[in-house]
Design a protein around this nucleic acid. Sequence first.
RNA 1: GGGGCUGUAGUAGAGUUGGUUACAACAUCGGCCUGUCACGCCGGAGGUCGCGGGUUCGAGUCCCGUCAGCCCCGCCA
Length: 596
Amino acid sequence: MNDALGNWKRTHYCGDLTSADIGSEVCLMGWVQRRRDHGGLIFIDLRDRTGIAQLALDPDRDPEAHAKADKIRNEFVVAVKGTISPRPEGTINPKMKTGEVEMEVRELKILNTSKTPPFMLDEHVEVAENIRLKYRYLDLRRPALQKNMILRHQVTKTVRNYLDEEGFLEIETPVLNKSTPEGARDFLVPSRVNGGNFFALPQSPQLFKQLLMVSGYDRYCQIVKCFRDEDLRADRQPEFTQIDCEMSFVDRDDIITIMENMIARVFKESIGVDVATPMARMTYAEAMDRFGVDNPDLRFDLELVELSKIVDGCGFKVFADAIKNGGMVKAINAKSCAKFSRKDLDGLTDFVKIYGAKGLAWVKMTEDGWQSPIAKFFTPEELEQINRAMDAEVGDLLMFVADTTAITNEALGRLRGHLGQKMGLADKNDYRFVWITDFPLLEWDGETRRHMAVHHPFTAPRDEDMELLDTEPAKACAKAYDLVLNGSEIGGGSIRIHDQQIQSKMFELLGIGKEEAQEKFGFLLDALEFGAPPHGGLAFGLDRLVMILTGSDSIRDVIAFPKTQKATCLLSGAPSTVEEKQLQELSLRLRMRKKE
RNA sequence: GGGGCUGUAGUAGAGUUGGUUACAACAUCGGCCUGUCACGCCGGAGGUCGCGGGUUCGAGUCCCGUCAGCCCCGCCA
């Protein structure tokens, strides 16, 4: 039925053919994008990962190949031999990369047939994502995803080359690990040999890369899969890839310099964009103050302005009470947005409520002053002061949130990002990097009534904050840093604790008792006693980086075989039940959760 | 655990206040066509309106439940 490949060898990729190849005898292999039958002449668009080439089959020139082409349908796999020739006058297709030439087919082999695909493998067709995921191998044939996969490869290649030149060694770390209490929920793997015991898949190779520093490898890197059993988002998959690095005998600025140069080179070599270095920096405190979030999008202004001092004790109870209760009042000025409708404003109010704000106060700046439901609560002096603080002009829209510090910042910060998108202030081709530094070391968790590590438990406090650990640990800052690009955190890291006593103190602050620390992290504590060098590092989220480089809205568009939001694979059907025998071997019995 | 959006031929959509046989496009199948390139022309086939229940003389349309995909909160660096 199908023709055998035989001794045919492909000589060219479809997308590479140009007028320079005119006259060449070539052999192409690929998939049939389209067949156009003109009764006599048949055209076939042949596709491979590089592009499309037009095949011309003339019944007069080669009746045998032409007759065979009659049977060809979309997505058949064919091999052709023939001559590259210039297209006749007036039939050049300027929309195609290979549009100046075509192949005069002399011999044709049908290597495989194809069922009619469930959707057109065409850029013009939008297909529901569940269909695309079920037939992922077909979706991956489409140029959009192929472009993303190829760019992803380009990025990892550049990263490896750069890190190699900088003296990093790529060393693999275990996938089967010990479960540790901190951080995300672990994926667990039952041990058959040690019934009742479980491995955990790595959330990151954190501890192992620190051990490699103790072992003297000095500069380590790895492009590595990590696993976190948490719910998915547009930019989060349960398994994802990190560019993981660790260095010895360095401080924060050494790491930042090496890493930002790597990112700059990635941008240059993958999408041809020049990134200025050194990149901008901002402390966590400044980011929260000006933008309300620790991952600010610096492509637009819309900065948050704190008005607490001005409205303290004012006649508007909502504002006055928020401050009296230890919270704050902040506002943003959406320039020229006074034209927003009541419906728009209701929508924005609903938006901030998602983040816990009780409401959104607004003011439209008109020729006659404030047009606002809350105008009546303020004295002329207060109005004047607010206008000045907000730099308010006729046509502007001011929006206020009054709440706890955390809620005010998050609600307004997210509103800022939302408006930036909605008003088209965020240019996809503009890349604004910023390092966020001096994160708090600890964060009080009201639920468990204990401190949690903001970054992770191995992050070093700033030298000048060491004493605070004993007095006011919540005020201590960490030697931690995140790289933020266009409002997305693409990487983060820290200088680690290399002193066993400080590490023990950290566990203490985190409410991890001596015994538990020894039980869970004893191997690290032990290692720190055998000459651990000062060290630190960071990890980039490869998927998020490639998302931005490709302009993708979903992380699924940069992963070959992604999971759905319910963490299933529509292609393979994973996860699935297993045989009772398999459970027995693992000393497991199922106890299903009751469905409510 | 919670909030929201979507679900109609293979695909992506239209379908009026509930009313006869559920539409046209692309794909597909058959025929015609020697310069097309998202080819064109003629003809055909293709449907449990996601699934289940309810209201009604009558449900694609209204109500309840459920499933799936997506976005978000919680969760997660």
